[in-house]
């Protein structure tokens, strides 16, 4: 650290980063001007979510999870998988997180087998590609795989595994890989991913469902979609043959941001506003997840309920 300080001193006085021009008139026109960075040194104030949650961890992901079979179904076809890793000290490793929610379908035990196979398959393929590079000396000659391609290959492998292993089953899948503050999310079906910052609640994923398309075409309203007889009809799922098209979303997550992934057993019963209110009232992410499951069950709990909430370090 002493050496770093020495060289920081070398470049003093430390001023805000200047673009290679003479001021704002030039900045926007410089084709390769750097865009101002978010102030990485700042921390969100503890009440930035206007919630009772404790402030985010300084170094690692905070995770809450909950899963319940619900009030009606005899068994659980949802799968929840979380993996986190941290390495702090000299040459710290960017935090690793892998979070998967999958909702299987197909009757008998086909659904639960399909979702379980898919989640395991993704974790295997993704972590096999990522861990060696992540744990290697960062200054050395490290070959780092492409994050979106890692996740796409992992979902493709999961698809093949389900097609071969449970030909009559299928599963939805929302799978989030976080390296440092970089999120890469792969999505198929109607499990959902949300980002929550301050009071902003953003749905990252788009349901691959009939009613979602009807809404986009202006044929039905949100309220009609919520009670539409075909609201559970999907047009895309893992395990339905070759050539699965996957939505891939990459996002940089700001400190303290919450990522929420859940199955339709939660979101179709508990409206966004109530999810946000539960987060505001909760004293921990775990308490929030438990309260969300309870809210879905209080609303009838017709389906399996799975939720994971991850908070980025602050």
């Amino acid at each position: 650290m002493v050496v770093v300080e020495f060289f920081k001193n070398l470049f003093r006085p430390k001023e805000p980063l200047a673009a290679p021009g003479v001021g704002s008139a030039v900045r926007p026109s410089d084709p390769d001007a750097t865009v101002p960075l978010p102030d990485l040194g700042s921390r969100p104030s503890p009440d930035s979510l206007k919630s009772k949650l404790p402030p985010p961890s300084r170094s690692r992901f905070t995770v809450g999870t909950a899963q319940d079979v619900g009030m009606v179904r005899p068994h659980n076809e949802d799968v929840l998988l979380t993996f986190t890793g941290e390495l702090n000290g000299l040459e710290p490793m960017p935090n690793l997180g892998l979070f998967i929610v999958a909702d299987g379908m197909g009757g008998h035990s086909l659904g639960e087998r399909a979702s379980a196979l898919a989640a395991r398959s993704i974790a295997q393929v993704a972590l096999q590609q990522i861990l060696p590079s992540l744990l290697a000396d960062p200054a050395g000659d490290v070959e780092r795989p492409l994050l979106t391609e890692v996740m796409e290959s992992a979902v493709a492998a999961a698809n093949r595994t389900v097609v071969a292993g449970v030909p009559e089953g299928g599963t939805t899948l929302t799978s989030a890989l976080i390296i440092g503050d970089q999120l890469v999310l792969c999505h198929v079906g109607d499990t959902r991913g949300y980002l929550i910052t301050d009071n902003h609640f953003e749905q990252l994923t788009r349901d691959h469902s009939l009613v979602q398309r009807l809404k986009e075409l202006g044929q039905i309203t949100d309220d009609e979609a919520a009670v539409h007889p075909q609201r559970s009809v999907l047009y895309r799922a893992v395990g339905q043959g070759d050539g699965l098209e996957v939505d891939v979303i990459s996002r940089r997550l700001t400190p303290g941001t919450l990522l929420l992934i859940c199955s339709d057993g939660l979101w179709s019963l508990v409206p966004d506003t109530l999810l946000l209110e539960i987060i505001r009232q909760a004293t921990s992410l775990q308490a929030a997840c438990d309260a969300m499951v309870k809210a879905a069950n209080d609303a009838g709990g017709p389906d399996n309920i799975t939720v994971v909430i991850v908070q980025m370090p602050g």
Partner: peptide, 21 residues
């Protein structure tokens, strides 16, 4: 990723790129 050097995605064109984005 500027912090870690991990590639988030790549986009393919059909000839060399000299242009800066």
């Amino acid at each position: 990723d500027a912090s870690s050097g991990w590639t988030i995605w790549r986009f393919r064109t059909n000839k060399p790129i000299l242009s800066s984005p």
